[in-house]
Structures are given as structure tokens and as C-alpha cells.
């Protein structure tokens, strides 16, 4: 699991390359915070991708009592890059723990920019850079750093840590995660940012735990798509 140092922060921002796994991590992390007894709010700031949204997890979030702030237009045919005014409540309500799910790349991070003054003013946040070695554009530490800088420039907020979400979809094994650690450490060295979390599917969490001791965070897949292959477990 992750350190107290991370969960004690009031705002946690997840940003990164397009398709790096931000939404799923943000949903899992919000549920984790909530299960620790925190009043938790998750806000979807993605104005880039009209598919695969935080809103897909609406039911589980509601069941857990987690407040979801999402565009009224998410998952509809209205392809409008609009964010609800309610998003400001995350910054106004200091009793809650806020999780921000930011859109991919610099284009997605642009929307975060308008909330950055509030985040800096309160100064109780983590801004986590989600990385995956097996994504084509972030296959090398140098390419990953390039995207990191583009995001920071776009939103005006600096990252404070890294989430190593290296995976290869259904074919991910413990070995996939273990062998990605060197890449993550290289990104960490080049950026000067600590690895605050390494994610792994909950099905292989116990095995991975034997190899990776620090900050291993299990992920559940809360949304099941009908076109995914049925798995015999």
C-alpha cells in the first residue's frame, strides 16, 4: 500500500500521457482513501476524451458514498469540453480529500490550469505523474520526461511524484511490473521525483508483493466491457 505521507495530503492530482491509466488509478485511489475513513470527492477534469470516463464508475462510487463531480455531458453525444462549476467545491470544502482525474497529455492538462492558483494557495497536494513503459510514446525515460514537461508547462503545476503503472493490458505478469522498475527509477532520477506508487492488478498483487516491497498499490477493474474476453478465474 501507499505511505501515510501520500494519503495525508488533501488534494491528489493524477496526470500523465494519454492512455497511461489515470482514470482507473484515480477511481481506485478514491475508493482507497474512502475506505480509510476519509470523506472523499473525485473530480473528472478530462475534456479531451469523450469515451472511458470516471463516470463509467458512477455506480461503485455511489455505493461507496464517494462524491463524483463530472461533466453532465460525459458519456453522451454532446462532445463539449465543459467542466461543471461544482468542481470548485473540491477546493472550498477543506474537510474532504479530493482526487483529480486530469485528461491526457498537455492538451488534457490545460483544463487543470484554472484550478492551479487554488491548489498552490492551499499548498496541501500531491501531483502524480502516471507512467507506463509499455506505451509507445513513453517507452524510454527521455520520451517520458518530454511528455512530463509538456504537461507541467500546460497546467502550470509541477509534479511531486511518480506512479509507475507499467502494464501491458491483459498480458501483464509480475515480471512485467518487476522489469519496469528500472525504467521507473530512471524516470525518477531524470526528473528528481520519487516513485510514490507502483500499481499492479489485484489478481497478482500477492505475488508482486514478494518482489516489490515499497508502495505497491493493487488495482481493481471496476468497469467490465462486454467486448472484453471473459476470463476463467
Amino acid at each position: 500500500m501507499v505511505s501515510n505521507n501520500l494519503t495525508s495530503k488533501r488534494i491528489t492530482v493524477f496526470a500523465g500521457h494519454y492512455g497511461s491509466g489515470k482514470t482507473n488509478i484515480a477511481v481506485n485511489y478514491a475508493i482507497y482513501l474512502n475506505d480509510l475513513g476519509n470523506k472523499t470527492v473525485i473530480a473528472d477534469l478530462d475534456i479531451v476524451n469523450p469515451y472511458f470516463r470516471t463516470k463509467d464508475s458512477e455506480k461503485i462510487l455511489k455505493d461507496k458514498g464517494i462524491k463524483l463531480i463530472s461533466s453532465e455531458y460525459a458519456n453522451t453525444n454532446v462532445d463539449v469540453p465543459a467542466l461543471p462549476a461544482e468542481t470548485y467545491s473540491v477546493f472550498a470544502d477543506k474537510d474532504c480529500k479530493g482526487v483529480l482525474d486530469v485528461g491526457g497529455d498537455d492538451r488534457g492538462a490545460l483544463a487543470l490550469g484554472r484550478y492551479v492558483p487554488l491548489i498552490l494557495e492551499e499548498n496541501d497536494y500531491e501531483m502524480l505523474f502516471v507512467i507506463n513503459k509499455h506505451r509507445f510514446m513513453t517507452g524510454t525515460p527521455e520520451g517520458t520526461i518530454e511528455i512530463m514537461k509538456e504537461i507541467e508547462d500546460a497546467c502550470g503545476l509541477k509534479f511531486t511524484g511518480i506512479v509507475n503503472n507499467s502494464n501491458i493490458g491483459e498480458e501483464t505478469t509480475v515480471e512485467t511490473v518487476v522489469s519496469s522498475m528500472e525504467y521507473a527509477k530512471n524516470v525518477s532520477q531524470l526528473s528528481g521525483l520519487p516513485i510514490k506508487m507502483t500499481t499492479v492488478w489485484d489478481a497478482i498483487y500477492d505475488k508482486a508483493k514478494e518482489e516489490i516491497e515499497e508502495n505497491l498499490f493493487p488495482l481493481k477493474m471496476y468497469v467490465k466491457q462486454s467486448w472484453l474476453k471473459e476470463r476463467d478465474e
Binding site: 494519454y18 492512455g19 507506463n132 509499455h134 506505451r135 509507445f136 517507452g139 502494464n167 501491458i168 493490458g169 498480458e171
Partner: peptide, 9 residues
């Protein structure tokens, strides 16, 4: 080595 990609990418 395999990479993880979206259909469009």
C-alpha cells in the same frame, strides 16, 4: 516487444 496501444494510435 509488445506495446500497449489504443486502436486509433
Amino acid at each position: 516487444e509488445k506495446v500497449l496501444m489504443k486502436g486509433n494510435e
